[in-house]
Computed example of a mutant assay.
Amino acid sequence: MHYLTNDLFFPPVSQANLDGILAIGGDLSPERLLLAYKSGIFPWFEPGDPILWWSPNPRMVLFLEELIVSKSMRNILNRKSFKVTFNQNFREVIAHCQNVKRNGQTGTWITNDMIEAYCNLNKLGIAKSVEVWQNEELVGGLYGIDLGTIFCGESMFSLVSNASKVAFIALVEQLKEKNYKLLDCQVYNPHLESLGCREIKRSEFIAILSNEN
C-alpha cells in the first residue's frame, strides 16, 4: 500500500492489493479527487480513519444500452407520481446519503469532510446530483462525478419504495441522450445487478477511462 504525500500523485492501479486498496493518506482537494476519478480511483473510509483510496478489480459498471427496467418499474414511471430534477439540491442529496440506514451497515463512509469536499466539486460543476420528489418532498436521489462521457456514481438513497431506482433510470436516460459511454458503479451489489450493471476487468475499465481523458 502506498502512503501519499502532498504531491498530486497516485501509483498505478495495478498496484492495488487484492481488496482493491491502492493508497492511504493525502487529502480531499478538488485537484486530487478529480485526478483520482480520472485514474479509476475513489476514496472510501470510515469516520476517524485515514483516507483510503480504492481501485477494485473487477469493476461494477453499466453500459447504458444494457439498462434493465422491469415491467413493474415501467408502470411506476408511467404513473408519474415522482418528479425528477437534476443538480438542484446537491447538499441535501449527499446529506440524505450520509444519514440513510442501510442493511448490514452500522455507520456511514460519507464523513462531514467528504460532504464538504464533494460540495466543493459540485460548485465546480464536477459533482452532480439527481433528485426525486413526491408531493414536493425530496424522497430519493443520487450523486456522483461527471467526467464528460463517463459518470461515476457514488451513492444513492430512497425514503420511499423505488425512489432511488427512479433516480438511477432518469440519470441513465439523460446520459444516453448526451452520448455518454458508461456509468461507473464501483463495486458489486445485487440491486445494481438487477438494473443491468455487471462486472468487468479493471484493466478494461481503465482502458475506457484512458480513451476519455
Rank of each mutant, 00 (worst) to 15 (best):
V61L: 03
F151L: 10
L124N: 04
E116F: 03
I51C: 05
W54G: 01
N211D: 14
F168P: 04
Y37L: 07
L175G: 04
V166F: 00
K83W: 03
N89V: 03
K201N: 10
N89F: 12
E116Y: 11
F10L: 08
S55P: 12
D184W: 12
Y180Q: 00
K165I: 03
L52N: 06
P190I: 03
S161V: 10
A95C: 00
I94Y: 07
L52K: 09
L192K: 07
N87F: 02
L171P: 06
G125Q: 10
Y118F: 15
S129K: 07
A23D: 13
M114I: 15
A16D: 06
A36C: 05
V160H: 07
N122Y: 13
N103G: 00
I206T: 12
F205K: 09
V187S: 03
F9D: 00
P50S: 09
F10V: 00
A36M: 12
V13D: 03
T85D: 05
L183K: 01
C185M: 14
L22M: 11
E131M: 05
V172A: 05
L33C: 10
K71G: 10
M60D: 00
A23P: 12
E173F: 08
L18H: 14
K71S: 15
L34N: 10
L33T: 06
W109M: 11
F63G: 01
H96Q: 13
F42L: 05
C97P: 11
E116P: 05
L121Y: 02
V61T: 06
V172C: 02
I206F: 08
F205I: 14
C185R: 08
F9Y: 15
P11V: 09
L183S: 08
E46R: 11
L175H: 06
I169A: 05
V130G: 05
M60A: 13
N17L: 08
M60C: 15
T85E: 13
I21W: 11
L22I: 14
A127G: 13
Q105S: 04
Y3A: 11
K83D: 12
F82I: 12
P11Q: 02
R79M: 13
W54N: 01
F63I: 10
A163V: 04
D146E: 08
L138S: 11
I115K: 15
F82G: 13
V100M: 09
N78P: 00
M156C: 03
E173P: 02
P47W: 10
